[in-house]
Design a protein around this nucleic acid. Structure first.
Lengths: 246, 246
DNA sequence: TACAAGAGATTGTATATACAAGCACGGGGG
DNA sequence: CCCCCGTGCTTGTATATACAATCTCTTGTA
């Protein structure tokens, strides 16, 4: 590595690894040389290699496992299109009077489609709950959540009157990865009734899937009344490094 | 700082600063004690403080200026709900045959609403273009973009046959911040014709506003046919530190 | 007054070192 | 055969140190 270059060393190391992944020399799942090996081949200190690998890991290019090594991440570096936080938090931030009600809390057999999405055997048992959020008595969000019993065996026994379902899930198991998909649609009749929208009013549906390790922990869909709610936010320059414009 | 705690030291330092910002003790724009000061008060090494501050900076909570100091970031730590990359990139990643056509490229007077959104005087001159993306001849996205002439005075003279409008804008001015809002709606007739959807089919509309400094540079809306396209992606654990579940 | 040079403070990067924590594997004892 | 434990490798964290780069402010000089 060239100490006198314009680029900092840790960045050069990042590019060195990144290029090898892009070129296919390091294929998906393959093991990347250990930090100590990189230290000798690249002739930089371990802390520099460590920082480079840590940032690549943060960016999702590689996966690091303490005690085993560093590997090229399974998924190709696909663009994360959406990053979504708690809708309840957002509402509170806007100063609304927020309430939330649990309408269903039960056990169910997973349909083949749902089972496939959750990587379970068809007709496996899953937990199911429907939660409605309101802002000043105006429905804002209807959430339908399926939970893998293996991850949260005592989910149904919890008291969610204070709407701490997600905090509970977080406390039970650390989420390792998450998927968000947004679509526009006309929801089913009973969802429309809960949202108080008519059948001509398009709604946003946000599907969220969470993983704990390699296991799908939850599969949820959140519906938003198109006439009353949108999803969005403004970003800081630091976030922009990963954004390219269309 | 408690060396024997469950949390790593750099995380404790992050929380220490973060809490002070949340509580208001460190108000927006205020100067945060320098690294060396924090070293003595918290009794940790400078590298630890450095890592904590660097990560807080990456997360947009603080702003660091070499030679001057560290300051609480201007915008409050509002949740970025959405992070969206190039749709064209996404299509290419899926291996589709991608084409894009510019349908309109002209100068226009901004309506009062648009002018307000772009922080311009009513009926100011803006540049306007409509771009349609297709995947194997199936319309995927219709983009309507308004450009502030002060930012890109030669926008209309560019050759966008290869669909490098966004690259051009990026080359002209560095985007300092960006806003994304997603909603579900039934688009106008001419948009529906371009997207080849009927009037009963809900579509996704993604509104994007970009800033260059304190100036609004572009205001765009992208439409997606609900029946053929969704927005989404899967995330890595590192992103999850800023995500709370609903 | 205007401008240049320099000192001091602050953040950015790089290194060497050390220990902790987690995983894999093999050897020994039951 | 199975289980426990130790050994070695790997990543995670923490420290002390050093120098570079950048900004501010003061001081000196024309």
């Amino acid at each position: 590595m060239d100490q006198s270059a314009r680029q900092p060393l840790y960045r050069q190391v990042k590019e060195f690894i990144s290029d090898k992944i892009d070129s296919g020399e390091l294929a998906t799942g393959m093991r990347i040389p250990s930090e100590t090996e990189l230290v000798t081949t690249l002739n930089v200190s371990r802390m520099t290699v460590n920082r480079a690998l840590r940032e690549l890991s943060d960016e999702g290019r590689i996966r690091r496992v303490q005690g085993r090594g560093t590997f090229v991440a399974e998924r190709k570096p696909q663009s994360p299109l959406l990053e979504i936080r708690s809708i309840a938090e957002e509402i509170r931030a806007r100063g609304g009077r927020h309430s939330c009600t649990v309408h269903v809390l039960q056990e169910e057999k997973a349909s083949p489609q749902l089972a496939a999405a959750m990587q379970l055997a068809p007709y496996s048992t899953v937990y199911y709950s429907v939660i409605v959020h309101k802002d000043n008595d105006v429905p804002i969000q209807v959430g339908c959540r399926y939970i893998n019993p293996a991850v949260a065996p005592h989910y149904l026994e919890q008291d969610f009157t204070r709407c701490t379902a997600s905090e509970y899930l977080l406390s039970v198991a650390p989420v390792s990865s998450i998927e968000h998909v947004v679509e526009a649609l006309i929801p089913d009749r009973w969802i429309r009734d809960l949202l108080q929208v008519n059948s001509a009013e398009p709604c946003l549906a946000l599907h969220r899937k969470t993983w704990v390790g390699e296991q799908v922990a939850t599969f949820s869909t959140f519906y938003y009344p198109g006439s009353r709610y949108t999803l969005g936010g403004r970003f800081h320059p630091s976030s922009l490094t990963t954004i390219s414009l269309t």
